[in-house]
Amino acid sequence: MADQQRADARRNYARILAVAEQEVAAHGADASLERIARVAGVGSATVRRHFPGRRALLRAVFAERIEALSARAAALTDAADPAAALRDWLAALTDYAASARGMADALAQDRLTEPEDVQSCAAKLAGALEPLVERAARAGAVTADVTAADLITLVTGIALATEHHPDPAAEAHRLLDLTWRGTGSAA
């Protein structure tokens, strides 16, 4: 019986987290906890048992994606084309930042997370990205003074700037492409 309860609790947790990610993407960091519970097919008490507040839920939503982005960076570290690997990872970060409306805002304004959470998220992403940036710099794809933190800040800014665009993901990618190519003008 206890094993069945633990299995149910794990399924509920996973379902709540999946629904929360969709709701945050659709409605931003202010997504309704009651709606999340309803869509997940659980009671609001079950949501609160797993996530005592909005911050805990957002932390879990963002942490899962940050782990996935970190794993993707690790997988790209030995790619044959360092520039393409870096561009691929930046596109993945742009996809997520443009679709998870609350993430860029929370990271940029420290509105919904503790300062150490923001630093931890940024540090994890930068740590994962740094080998890709170093390889791209050695290949001449980016200048040696470009840092992982610079690129994360750039993508965060693009996501914030395009959040209210009719198609935020497409506009974010257009701006990332423009940034990657440069303006084409001679300095």
Rank of each mutant, 00 (worst) to 15 (best):
Ala2Phe: 13
Ala2Thr: 14
Ala2Asp: 10
Ala7Val: 10
Asp8Gly: 11
Ala9Glu: 14
Arg11Met: 13
Ala14Val: 13
Ile16Glu: 06
Val19Trp: 01
Val24Met: 07
His27Glu: 09
His27Asp: 10
Gly28His: 10
Arg35Trp: 00
Ala37Leu: 04
Val39Cys: 08
Val42Cys: 04
Gly43Tyr: 02
Thr46Leu: 10
Val47Met: 03
Arg48Ser: 09
His50Asn: 12
Arg55Ala: 14
Ala56Tyr: 07
Ala56Cys: 09
Arg59Ser: 12
Ala60Cys: 03
Val61Met: 00
Arg65Tyr: 07
Glu67Trp: 11
Ala68Arg: 15
Ala73Gly: 09
Thr77Gly: 13
Thr77Cys: 11
Thr77Phe: 05
Asp78Arg: 04
Ala79His: 02
Asp81Val: 04
Ala83Glu: 12
Ala84Lys: 08
Ala84Ser: 07
Ala85Thr: 04
Ala85Cys: 06
Ala92Gly: 05
Leu93Lys: 07
Asp95Ser: 04
Gly102Ser: 08
Asp105Thr: 12
Val118His: 00
Leu129Val: 01
Leu129Ile: 06
Glu130Asn: 08
Ala136Cys: 07
Ala137Val: 03
Arg138Asn: 12
Ala141Ser: 07
Asp145Val: 05
Ala148Glu: 05
Ala148Leu: 04
Ala149Asp: 09
Asp150Tyr: 01
Ile152Lys: 01
Val155Phe: 05
Leu160Gln: 08
Leu160Trp: 02
Glu163Cys: 07
Glu163Asn: 10
His164Asn: 12
His164Ala: 10
His173Val: 02
Leu176Trp: 02
Leu178Gly: 10
Trp180Lys: 00
Ala186Leu: 12
